[in-house]
Design a protein around this nucleic acid. Structure first.
Lengths: 201, 201
DNA sequence: AGAATAAGATACGCGCCGTATCTTATCCGC
DNA sequence: GCGGATAAGATACGGCGCGTATCTTATTCT
């Protein structure tokens, strides 16, 4: 008979099975259908093993999502401001789409306020930093005016995209993303950086 | 002995007791702590009575909130664009504040998508229509340029305020509201309506 | 080797779900 | 007023997931 019959998983192997099971349950049953019991069954483990790691359903889901869905990074800035912004926003939008609005809403509702903020912030700080860098580059290149752009302005598109997706439940179309960019964001950047002629073109 | 001992409530009286109990539970235990059983107990009625009226917890809470939190109205447009927008935003913000982010997040997570959208749209005085009217007035008065402002631009502050409150969990301060207005919205309106000099005051 | 650690199995009481059944107070039309 | 329709209210049900406690046993570290 096989001597290694009752092989017992640990650490990464186990953790990975848990995350996988969680994501599968998430996909099949939606956020509210994710259950400690269900995940334990599916990952062929037991509830205590889960409870030893995660204090709540929300944390479990969050961990699984983070493990499999790293934050989007902007791979190669071309130096062309509009193109870079567009690809950044698209990456964001794709991430939202993969996750689904239901998951994020569920997390938002069930995570403690503090934790939800951290999490959102982690996502948006990265973006904030990226945006800041892109804009700084464009200013240095003379594509924008010389003045510093206020943070509130810098973060506008994050808020707009999130709102569209989370509140209204639609994944922004390419056209919408471009609209935000051309009608709102780029004009604001030009204006606040003090670029030459904000009018025609 | 009193002949009207087992007085049995109906219609408004009953409904009102249900709403009151729901709001009380909401306040004490938060959205996720609201329970059909708990509300029934507190309203001194029974679960079937509740289930005959509301199909889900979210609908129960929604009804209670709507019953006790009617829409604020924008009292008097002064014709002064900035002042009117400011008071509109403040009213909006005050409403969110009374409700609390947790409740809205819970509703968003548990209501079906369609219903959530209706509710968000209907529940807000800071509507597209209101903004459109104010801006149209300002344009007619020559306070802005003559051109029509695109919808995406018109709705910007709705998204920004909601994002701030719901995602980040903070009630926007007066200063933040003014920032949105002065750094983002008014400039955009001037720009898109084709107002004369968008630069230094 | 032995000790420490953590996986895994099982079982518990609890609270809430959503529904079915039944009684009985109240309302409405005649 | 009376009598039938209506809906409140009480109760009970099986089911499920929660969160925890207890115990055994495989694995790893020293």
């Amino acid at each position: 008979m096989p001597p290694t019959a009752p092989s017992r998983r640990r650490n990464e192997e186990l953790l990975s099975a848990i995350h996988e099971a969680t994501l599968a349950e998430l996909a099949e049953r939606g956020f509210s259908g994710v259950t400690f019991e269900g995940v334990a069954r599916r990952a062929r483990t037991s509830k205590p093993v889960l409870y030893r790691r995660y204090p709540s359903r929300a944390e479990l889901v969050l961990a699984a999502v983070h493990a499999r869905e790293p934050l989007p990074v902007l791979d190669a800035p071309t130096g062309e401001l509009r193109a870079d912004l567009l690809s950044l926003f698209s990456a964001h939008e794709a991430r939202y789409h993969r996750l689904g609005a239901g998951v994020i809403r569920g997390l938002l509702a069930e995570l403690p306020q503090e934790r939800a903020n951290e999490t959102l912030a982690a996502g948006s700080i990265l973006t904030h930093t990226t945006l800041r860098a892109l804009v700084a580059q464009a200013r240095a290149d003379g594509k924008l005016g010389p003045r510093e752009v206020p943070d509130a302005v810098l973060d506008t598109p994050i808020a707009l995209l999130r709102h569209e997706f989370l509140m209204l439940g639609r994944v922004p179309s390419r056209a919408q993303v471009e609209e935000i960019l051309d009608l709102i964001y780029l004009p604001l950047l030009r204006l606040h950086s003090g670029a030459a002629a904000p009018s025609g073109r």
